[in-house]
Design a protein around this nucleic acid. Structure first.
Lengths: 402, 402
DNA sequence: TATAATAGTTCGGGTATATGACGAATCAAC
DNA sequence: GTTGATTCGTCATATACCCGAACTATTATA
């Protein structure tokens, strides 16, 4: 094995170029690939031959009707690799995709209420069945991403504060799952992945600076800045439940649960309705329904919720200046609620910011997980990471001035 | 014209590799360069020869004392290119550096109070003199970065809200300055650059996630996330003067000046001292002095200022989860004040965050400007940007699921 | 049927890189 | 001093990769 790092870089770049063209323009001929990538026909052909031998690419017919010789058209083969996106929330959702980003199948069921290891077992079972039902052996799956609530440590992948699923924090989820499923597993916060889902296939496509405000059982924020996800040093970026908004942040409940979440989380909405003298309700959705039915107490609670949410949004606008704010989660995705928030925000922010509601809804998490799994697979195959890491240009060390 | 027409990618990578090694380990021999870069001695030698011919590199002696043939040591030549960092605030500061990041000279004087075009003229004069005094013709300067208060549009470079220097907003600063100085000019917000200064040579070295909280005449935030500066869609990231903290954000002054800035800005401190019944003072510094002298009114004002600052810091922690918060600016850099902030923040944040005070002080802005100018020069010479842009791997377009 | 156009392959040339051999220069030990 | 080990830097050679041009194959159209 003659190890020639530099020499292989250029071929890797060519491969990557061709792959990308296939990703975006398949079915496509060798000739068109050469035009699109800017590579010579010669190089393109070599790469395609290699891809075909690797099973990454397959012919799908020929051109016809045009003058000249017919061209063989190629596309990425589903056999090239499969990826899995998993969302672990109140339900477990598993999505199977192929290397080209095509969604092949999706399944879900309520999460095993015993939590912890049982939930992982459930995931493995669903994933296995999904793969087999789609003529794919589970071992063919090359990249798996799991969306989970809680703070995910970006270095270790440990789940540090999982509020809803019990007993996840003590498990080595990455290790257990990747062993069960036989493929590399990555974990990411569900709100972050919902954001990436909206960016990939939802309402935030082609935007480099987006904030995703999730309001449901909890409160959370996903940040996408400079075309990158913001995880934070401990994976705790976007934990805006702890924003000092809506009460005394030094109060006991506020310190424990988070000041904003105490008010705006689903429990907070119900509690505030009761405190205002409202009759028994079970869920935040009921408060919304009563408000729509004309209950003035409920309306007041909702208005206040919208005001606090707008304050949180204004906070994000002031710190990060996104082009777009996406509202999601069971509460946030309601268009009536989003309208209220937008109205307040207009008076709070120094400049207007576009607000949209999530278009993917509950699927945002899995879709985002799939997109990350896909990116990981692509990076593994056509890594430019080595290249970027090989020649960084950091600020120079200190030199004495003369 | 040292423009290599389409130097092949692989050679460019080698050049970059060697350059980076020179940057960090000079003086260094050809043999050691080969070891460090992983390139062959042959390639390394070719690159060094090219650099030498280009004037980018020069020999600086030989090794001695070791067994074996002596090696010629090389370092980056100051002739390789010069850069300029400029800070335009109450004073104009100009720093001259060379391609290796060595600071060659620095000068400053009070900003021309007539502002606008006069200030630009002043900058040009200072820069010209600085260059000539250091045996460098101004035309040798290849990259200039200007630090300025206000919101700098990241696309156009226009200054959109310059509070202190009058008449800057209406000028095409980039165009005028680059014409006067004969070199490409970039503009960046002064707080952002102060942050980068601290990261380069100050108290935030080797940290990937930093927040820089500047408290002085105004209030501002610089964010460094995932090893990148956060500018925001409109360059308005970090405009935390508008954070809804410390009062009703819908109040007239709050909406105009920014809610937090109205309280915590230097004017706000003075005003609050007067409102509390304190006697005439001119500046925030006097309030601090009186507090130190035992004035209970002043102490109260300072405590409240620290509390509000801590709230702002907690906001940043909750949204972005930095590893480190740097306090800077004439007020923020005071260690006594920083201690107070740290104490309050400890009780606000769900996890402790390190707080430091700026070590570069007033020079942070120029140093940061110089670092960016340097990076721009390096990127121009050894751009890997073309390379990264040539083969992106974005999420694929939507495919119909089957 | 002839012609123009397009697809894909073959071949030669140029630029890189790595490797190993070789001369040059130095220290250390005898 | 002389010799040997050691390191520096260059030369020569082989290989990988890319491109462009020539060439063959295949098609629509006049």
């Amino acid at each position: 094995m003659p190890f020639q790092p530099m020499a292989s870089v250029t071929r890797q770049l060519s491969r990557r170029s061709v792959f990308e063209a296939l990703l975006h323009r398949s079915p496509i001929s060798r000739a068109d690939l050469a035009k699109v990538t800017g590579l010579s026909k010669q190089t393109t052909s070599e790469v395609i031959d290699a891809f075909a031998q690797q099973g990454l690419v397959r012919p799908v017919g020929r051109t016809s009707g045009n003058v000249g010789r017919t061209a063989v058209l190629y596309e990425l083969s589903p056999e090239g690799g499969h990826v899995l996106g998993i969302d672990l929330g109140a339900r477990v959702t598993v999505t199977l995709g192929d290397i080209a980003g095509r969604v092949l199948a999706e399944t879900d069921e309520p999460t095993d209420s015993r939590g912890g290891a049982w939930a992982l077992e459930q995931i493995a079972r669903l994933a296995d069945r999904l793969a087999r039902d789609n003529h794919t052996h589970p071992s063919r799956i090359r990249s798996i991403v799991l969306a989970t609530p809680g703070v995910v440590n970006p270095r270790t992948g440990a789940i540090e504060m999982a509020p809803n699923i019990t007993g996840l924090g003590h498990l080595n989820v990455v290790g257990l799952l990747s062993e069960k499923l036989g493929s590399p597993v990555a974990i990411e916060n569900d709100i972050n992945l919902a954001l990436l889902g909206e960016i990939w296939h939802g309402c935030a496509q082609n935007v480099a600076n987006v904030a995703f405000l999730a309001l449901g059982t909890g409160v959370g924020l996903g940040l996408y800045v400079n075309g990158q996800l913001v995880r934070g040093e401990n994976g705790a970026a976007g934990e805006i439940g702890y924003l000092p908004i809506g009460g005394d942040p030094l109060q006991a409940e506020a310190r424990l649960q988070g000041c904003l979440e105490y008010q705006v989380g689903a429990h907070g909405i119900v509690r505030r309705y009761h405190e205002a003298g409202g009759s028994e309700v079970e869920s935040a959705r009921e408060v919304f329904e009563r408000a729509q039915a004309g209950d003035p107490l409920a309306t007041g609670v909702i208005e206040e919720t919208a005001r606090l949410t707008a304050l949180a949004a204004a906070t994000v606008v002031a710190t990060v200046d996104p082009q777009l704010i996406v509202l999601g989660g069971s509460v946030g995705a309601r268009t009536d609620f989003a309208d209220k928030v937008a109205r307040v925000l207009l008076r709070l922010a120094p400049r207007p910011v576009e607000i949209r509601t999530s278009t993917l809804g509950k699927r945002a998490g899995v879709v985002g997980a799939l997109s990350v799994a896909l990116n990981k697979l692509h990076d593994e195959l056509f890594s430019v990471a080595d290249l970027a890491a090989a020649v960084p240009l950091p600020p120079p060390r200190v030199h004495a001035s003369r």
